[in-house]
Amino acid sequence: MSRVSEQLSVQLFVIVMIVALLLSGCVGVSAPAVAPADRSAPAAFKVGLVHPSPITDAWSGQAYAALERMRDELGAEIANVEVGDPAGYEKAFSDFASQGYTLVIGHGFQYQDAAEKVSLEFPNTYFTTVGGFKSTANFAPIDLVPGYMQALYAMGVLAGQITKTGKAVGFTLEIPATKLPLEGFRQGFESIPGNTFSMVVLRDGNDVGAGKEAALQAIADGADILIANANLAGDGVLQAVAEQGGDSIFAIGTIGNQNSKAPKNVLVSAVLNIPQALFAVAKSAKEGTFEGGHVRAFTINDEGVYQFIYNEELADIVTPELRALVDETIAKLKSGEIVVEMPQ
């Protein structure tokens, strides 16, 4: 290689090194890298419902309506399971909690023991039951019974004015949440001198046939006013009234609007607006303001929770004067002038 070529090679090498150093310097002063964005999504709001009877039943249907409202208005992912056998209560609650549900609802007093136990195992899940007196830091039952006893007291006063035989019969289950409200009806009905009320306790809340048979017997024994608070078995009572009632045997609807189940015989339905109460609980769970450790009791003073839907086909029997009597009774219950006694 000539001397000139060697000089050119050295110069070329120096130029390449200078360019490399310049490039490395540019990298060193470039803008700092942006940290990758946090792609973690917030936890889904999920609500699970455990109920004792089919959702076509007035009682469980109310809870399912609440669940649908949570989906539509709160964006909740929802699921429900029918569990009537006590052996399956704990598993139902645990299954929902282990799947990351935010709130688990047990639709009935009978679920409180399972909710209490499972709530201790899943402290990050909220639990509520419709009825009950037990609670934990993340379990708070709602008690609709005090207000429903008051509402049915007013219905007892109404029925007490309509009866011709002075006999009314109630059909229930051996569960405080279904039995106690009828004690309110008893007090209202028997506030009219000469009236008597008796109660039939059914063994299975899903046995429509047993409810119907018991109602037919009550009619045969002279009762002309029937009221059932017995889950699906209550439909059997209304079937009996519709078939055998004619124009002299009447019923009071409970929980939901049951007027259409015996349109010529159901005078009025005392509707328990469970969706309103449960929606409030779900909203607090989503917002993180849910408070455990106590029972939330509702009374007749809680607007919108207890409603009366009169059967307009029987407006000649439930006259404006009798409706005014119901309104007057409700006003006295709200003010405390009338007090419904809790049975000992």
Rank of each mutant, 00 (worst) to 15 (best):
V241N: 05
D204Q: 09
G211I: 06
G245T: 11
K261S: 15
V241Q: 05
K264M: 14
L202N: 02
A228W: 05
G236N: 13
D224E: 11
L202M: 11
I249W: 00
Q258T: 13
I225S: 01
G246A: 12
G246D: 11
I225E: 00
Q239P: 10
D235F: 03
I255K: 00
V208D: 00
A242H: 07
Q217T: 13
A223W: 01
L232E: 02
G234E: 08
L238P: 07
E213R: 12
A218S: 14
N231C: 04
T254P: 04
V266R: 03
G245M: 14
G245I: 15
I249T: 08
A210F: 06
L226F: 05
V201E: 09
V237D: 04
G205E: 00
G209A: 15
K261W: 14
G236M: 11
K261P: 10
A223R: 01
E243D: 15
A230G: 06
A228V: 06
D204H: 07
L232Q: 06
V241Y: 07
K264N: 15
D235H: 08
A251V: 14
G236A: 11
V237C: 05
A210H: 07
I252S: 14
A230E: 04
A230T: 01
I255N: 09
K264H: 13
G211D: 06
Q244V: 08
A210W: 03
L226A: 08
D221M: 01
V266K: 03
L202I: 03
A214F: 07
N257A: 13
G234Q: 06
L226M: 11
D207A: 03
A220F: 03
A223T: 06
Q244M: 13
I227E: 07
V241P: 00
L216Y: 09
L216H: 03
G222S: 02
E243H: 07
Q244K: 15
L226K: 07
F250S: 11
L238C: 10
I227Q: 01
I249H: 05
A218V: 05
L232P: 02
A218D: 06
D224H: 05
N206W: 00
D247Y: 06
V208F: 04
A210T: 11
D247W: 03
Q244G: 10
Q217F: 04
L202T: 02
E213F: 10
A233F: 04
G253D: 11
A262N: 09
A230N: 02
R203T: 14
L238Y: 13
I255Q: 10
A251P: 10
S248T: 15
V241M: 05
E243R: 10
D207E: 08
Q217I: 08
V241A: 07
A223Q: 05
Q258H: 12
G245W: 09
A262P: 07
T254K: 03
K261C: 12
N229K: 08
A262L: 09
I225G: 03
V237M: 14
A228G: 13
V237A: 09
